[in-house]
Amino acid sequence: MTAALALGDDALVLSHRLGEWAGHAPVLEEEVALANIALDLLGQARVLLSLAGDEDELAYLREERAFRNVQLVEQPNGDFAQTIARQLYFSTYQELLYERLARGTGPFAPLAAKAVKEVAYHRDHAEQWTLRLGDGTEESHERMRRGLDALWRFTGELFEPVEGCEVEWHTLHDAWLTRISSVLERATLTVPEGPRRGGWAAGAGRQGLHTEPFGRMLAEMQHLHRSHPGATW
């Protein structure tokens, strides 16, 4: 089931990236926040991947080319501002997508109806930080701007139609852009410029083509399961 893999892999991969902050976050509250968001995403990933097959096999035994997540979620954490930029772009998208899926009658409606409430809280967290960093010091403003710019080219892929999701992708995109523009304006930031489509580097995650850091992330994520098959605790 292509769509279950696409949505499940988005949640799984972003969950792992956020988990990498454990022990490294700038303050304890954010360590807890990012870990909590990661946990919500992991729960969503488990339900979605279970729709497509065995969750553990799918998470731990697939090769890089078999993952269908967008390239945005696999991007390295960078500094805290870049992580917040990734959260802002993705959680805004995920909330709008889940709102639409929840209204439908497809296989994702029950999960989407449940998870949209969690994701709204993630989006709010990202917005609050975007405002605080953007409208903060010169240094925080500059770092937030850099994070937003660096990830902008990965945002076009979010709106490539996913087979099996009954969603009007162009209206989803318009709603996303409106919301992002409004937050950035309030944060005294500007919507980045530059291409978001075309070129192999940004936008082929759904076809299984990933960026270079993803392989290393997978190696770490899958290492334990591959070294000790069937391990439990």
Binding site: L39, D40, L41, L42, G43, Q44, R46, V47, L111, K114, A115, E118
Partner: peptide
Amino acid sequence: TPTYTGCP
């Protein structure tokens, strides 16, 4: 039913 989807 879970409280949160990822509730451990």
